[in-house]
């Protein structure tokens, strides 16, 4: 193990390390602590410039209540879920099929198509922006929930396929071979052998795509204009304009935007990390 385990070091080093840890964490998360504290402040603190000091009064519930009561925050949150969940379902299903095709069959186009998905996943959004926006306007998908999740699903399919293909490629091929010898139909092999085996990959992709799409801000701006279908990220920006200088309310709204991915991450941490490392770093 690198570095040398601290248990083997002298007592002073060990004590120093263990007391430095919480301090380091405090510094690292200072921005989050600041926003959390601020979301509990009263307006008085904000007006007197006490944005980073200890709050003089605690108005946690009032602040969140104000955000829910006076703004479209609930609507934004619901929109975010309505965009994110279908994206996850569509892109992961498509990627299971495509990843299976690219991993199991030997055909000349397998590698070029795989690289097409990989490359497409890395291109800048701006090269897609005008045509996708135009297409959405033409098909009536502009400023709708569906217009957003259809695009996200298509785009994320690239990443999901990359991941799935590598995951399936690492499975023992004998399983498939012997099923074929038994005369099992290809789609049955996929459904009864592959799908149960790729469950961890499905979980990893689900959390990752959820986080990516939940946090999207660019496409929310490109594909919507009204308040009706905006996700929470774009909503927070709108609230920032609405609550000028009411930092305590903006903080509360921002934290609301951050909660779902954070909860997701905590519940599925192992899968999340497996997904982020693209399965390449085991």
């Amino acid at each position: 193990m690198f570095p040398r385990p601290i248990e083997r070091a002298s007592t002073t080093t060990r004590v120093a390390y263990q007391s430095f840890l919480p301090f380091a964490l405090f510094l690292w998360l200072l921005p989050l602590l600041a926003i959390f504290l601020t979301s509990m402040r009263g307006a008085k603190d904000i007006n007197t410039g006490n944005v980073f000091g200890w709050p003089t009064e605690f108005k946690l519930i009032e602040n969140y209540y104000t955000v829910f009561a006076q703004t479209e925050a609930v609507k934004y949150l619901i929109n975010s879920f309505m965009i994110t969940l279908p994206t996850v379902a569509i892109s992961v299903s498509l990627a299971c099929l495509a990843g299976y095709a690219l991993a199991v069959y030997r055909f000349r186009l397998a590698l070029p198509l795989f690289f097409l998905f990989v490359a497409g996943n890395f291109v800048p959004f701006q090269i897609l922006m005008v045509p996708v926006r135009d297409l959405s306007v033409q098909t009536g998908l502009y400023d709708t929930i569906a217009g957003q999740f259809l695009f996200h699903a298509a785009f994320q399919t690239g990443f999901c396929t990359l991941f799935m293909r590598n995951f399936i490629k690492a499975l023992p091929f004998d399983l498939i071979e012997s099923a074929r010898v038994e005369g099992v139909a290809e789609w049955r092999i996929f459904w009864y052998i592959i799908v149960p085996l790729v469950r961890p990959a499905i979980a990893a992709l689900a959390v990752l795509i959820f986080t990516f799409v939940w946090n999207d801000f660019f496409w929310a701006n490109v594909l919507t204009q009204g308040e009706q279908v905006k996700p929470i990220t774009a909503g927070v920006r709108a609230l920032n304009g609405q609550f000028i200088s009411n930092w305590h309310l903006v903080s509360a709204a921002s934290l609301l935007a951050a909660v779902p991915p954070v909860v997701m991450f905590f519940l599925m941490q192992r899968h999340f990390i497996a997904g982020l490392t693209l399965g390449a770093v085991k």
Partner: peptide, 16 residues
């Protein structure tokens, strides 16, 4: 907890 900043939206990070 060290992973946290990666999970939250860049919109929020930018505001903070």
């Amino acid at each position: 907890l060290f992973f946290f900043p990666f999970v939250i939206s860049q919109v929020v990070v930018g505001l903070i």
